[in-house]
């Protein structure tokens, strides 16, 4: 993953960048599988490696395939990124080791979900019951986000393409 990330930064050919970001997503999905987060891995593989790559390629077809050289070396940006990265790594130093049963996250609501979801909600996949039932509001919010995103793109790109030219049929809104 690190090699892919560095290659992503260095490459100037955007087609290769899109392909590499797809590979990066797939590697991330493999990482999630290793961490036993199968549902997340599934989503990452489908959305990150699949749909996002296709959409990027669609964008590339509309624009250009090679990035323009930056006018100057962005040293300030490098400094800010390094600082933020260092802070984030510093933050992880306090985290409990992976798989520690005494970690706070395992003592909040997780035991209740694991013990009760079988009798309260039913599905054997606890992820589903947490997502759809215990955290129903959150999932409703996520769906609303997707709806809003698609609606926003519809407004931005799906409107009338020729300003000054009247729409032929008022009732039909195909785009």
């Amino acid at each position: 993953m690190t090699v892919t990330a560095f290659a992503l930064v260095r490459l100037r050919n955007l087609f290769a960048v899109v392909m590499l970001s797809g590979i990066f997503s797939l590697l991330a999905a493999v990482l999630y599988v290793v961490l036993d987060a199968v549902d997340v891995a599934f989503t990452e593989a489908a959305v990150g490696a699949g749909i996002a790559t296709v959409l990027m390629l669609g964008t590339l077809a509309l624009t250009t395939g090679v990035v323009k050289e930056a006018p100057r070396k962005p040293l300030a940006a490098l400094l800010i990124v390094s600082l933020t990265g260092a802070l984030l790594i510093f933050g992880t130093l306090d985290m409990p080791p992976y798989g520690d049963p005494n970690a706070p996250i395992h003592h909040h609501v997780a035991p209740r979900y694991i013990e009760k979801s079988g009798s309260e909600v039913g599905p054997p996949n606890i992820v589903t019951s947490v997502l759809a039932s215990y955290r129903g509001y959150d999932t409703l919010g996520e769906v609303t986000v997707i709806f809003t995103a698609a609606a926003g793109i519809l407004i931005l790109l799906g409107g009338r393409r020729r300003p000054g030219k009247k729409r032929r049929t008022a009732g039909k809104t195909g785009g």
Binding site: D39, G122, N125
Partner: peptide, 10 residues
């Protein structure tokens, strides 16, 4: 999705 990985999003 109730029984294995998956669900509406995927």
């Amino acid at each position: 999705g109730d029984f294995g990985p998956g669900g509406g999003f995927q």
